[in-house]
Simulated assay, not measured.
Amino acid sequence: MRSATTPLDLLVPGPEHLPADPAEPRLTSLHAVPAGTPHVRANMVATVDGAAWGADHRSGSINDDADWRVFRVLRAAADVVLIGAGTARHEGYTALDRPAGLPAASDRPLELALVSRSGRVPQLLADGDRPPLMITGATGARTAARLLPADRVLEVPSAHDPDDVDVRAGLAAIAARGLARVLCEGGPTLLAALLRDGLVDELCVTTSPRVVGPGPSRIVAAPASGPGAAPAAGVPTTPPVPARLGHLLHAPGTGTLLARWLLR
């Protein structure tokens, strides 16, 4: 596993210099959230021209050491990582471990929760020793039950379509298990659903100093069809959400910017 070596400057509030520190006390305090209170934080990376991934169709090709520093702190502060099953499959997710050397949110293992209409479990996770939680609808629950223990399948059908997923009910279901501090790592379609329903408390966005050109999605993308889909290309599906800047970090060696935006 790589080590964090890139220093950061805190610009807002600030200025303040944050040298690389394996224990990350200052970054931890900057990203602290209340214990026991449901809190949804999303963490995404985008290029200067808004791309959510690079040439290999993975977000890992556009992040860097500065992003890695914050990424580790956010995982340490979470009870559960929430991610779309398609993104987990594409990015090669396996069972999660808490980042070593950082203060953890709890003594419990860091959980992984997938959101999927189909209920299909990525093979790497289905074959692993620590199965993820699957948040899905009626048909998806039957599919997931063939690969996961019954107590790992959370069936939360949407009121307007039993095969669709009620993400609000899904968050309530994982909170009932004591997983209140949620870190959403994408993908763009899941983030769109969470924003559409007003469920995101804060959005951490790393702006990578790259321009990749047309092709990749933005960090928020409506599904191609079905409930919540954009009525036409370029037309927002929800009103704009006001955002307040919590803090802004800058990596002086690369120009990478890391912002924490408060949405609620």
Rank of each mutant, 00 (worst) to 15 (best):
L112S: 05
D79Q: 04
A85K: 04
A95F: 08
E111V: 13
V81N: 09
G119D: 13
R72L: 11
L124R: 14
T94F: 01
A113P: 10
Q123S: 09
R75F: 01
A104K: 03
A126Q: 13
Y93R: 07
A88Q: 12
A78E: 04
S106D: 15
A126Y: 11
P99M: 09
R72Q: 07
P122H: 02
L96G: 07
L125W: 07
G86F: 10
A104S: 10
V73P: 00
R75S: 00
H90E: 15
L125S: 13
A85F: 08
F71T: 00
A77C: 06
V115G: 08
V81E: 04
R117M: 02
T94W: 01
A100D: 10
R98G: 06
L96H: 02
A78V: 06
H90F: 12
F71C: 07
D79A: 00
H90R: 14
E111D: 12
L125I: 09
G84W: 04
R120E: 05
R117W: 03
L102M: 00
S116C: 13
L125V: 02
R108Q: 15
T87A: 03
G92T: 12
A85I: 05
L114V: 07
P99C: 12
T87D: 03
G101P: 15
Q123R: 08
F71D: 03
A105V: 05
L114I: 02
E91D: 15
L112F: 14
G92A: 08
Q123D: 12
R75Q: 07
P122Y: 04
G101Q: 03
Q123L: 03
R89I: 09
V121R: 07
P103D: 03
A88N: 10
E111L: 07
Q123M: 02
G101L: 01
Y93C: 00
P99A: 13
